[in-house]
Amino acid sequence: MADKVKVGFLLLGGCAGCEMAVVDLSEKLVDVLQHIEVVFWAPTAADVKYTDLESMEDGFIDVAFIDGMVRLDEHIHMANVMRKKAKTVIAFGVCAALGGTAGMGSLHDKNDLFEKAFKNTPTTDNPDGVFPQPQCLVDGKYDLTLPAYEDKVRTLNQIIDVDYYIGGCPPHHDHVAAAVTALLTGNMPPKGSWITNGKAVCDVCERNPAGKENGQGRAMVNQILRTIEGEPDKEICLLQQGYLCFGPITQGDCGGLCLKVNIPCRGCGGPIPGNHDYGAQALSTIGSIIKNEEITHQLMEKYPNLAKFFYRYALPSGTLPRRM
């Protein structure tokens, strides 16, 4: 390869966990670095100014990995700039792709969120009720600004055109490695696709009861348990036991890691291609496999907010929420 591929990383409203997944590539990263050149990595790895990106030539970056959800006006601005500078944009991780857990914030008024975060939590000491302001004058002379908080959380593709999506919170490093390899070899799916093997977590989960030789097969769910209730059997499918695992509905590029430590899948991998609405499909699938009305109502009692339950990582991408 003559030229190294120019790569940029941009973090929007996230925790930078996705970028840690890149670091987690460890020795593989060393191999990769022969082929790529990181020209932008902010704000996680380098302290830069807006102008550093704005001043780049359009299309200068070959591939931009954007992680985190869109929550501030700054995110909108930077995402738009990056779109101009990058030939290919990848929504990297579930926040950028579907909104992530912070997306549940869309169900609340932003003033309420501020009240909660800056005033009402038990550990907050803010007797004067000082809230962050978009603009403030410090010492009477420094006119400082902070990015403004948007009314709701958005996914990256609700702001800019996105070429590819990678799920996960964060994406598994092996999956990142596979994605980067595909990228470098030009072995990419059609634009607009998710980079995934396209199969559910169940496909890689050793507990999957379907097609098991014991002839039992999958059964209807006849009780609902939260993870705080009892201890799940380590061998048996969690969903079957009543622990509502989203494995059937979720891309299994993670290798079913959570299941290996006895934690039900919560859906960070994103929907299996072909699904347009993660939460709606989760409801449909779970609703179908629940034995009867009584158990359904048990679920509704134990999970008092179904929007947060079914759309834990995907609310801003939902068919209805994205219009609301």
Partner: peptide, 12 residues
């Protein structure tokens, strides 16, 4: 080719 083998459909 699309089937993930989760088996949800089977008991339904």
């Amino acid at each position: 080719e699309k089937c993930s083998g989760c088996g949800i459909c089977e008991p339904l």
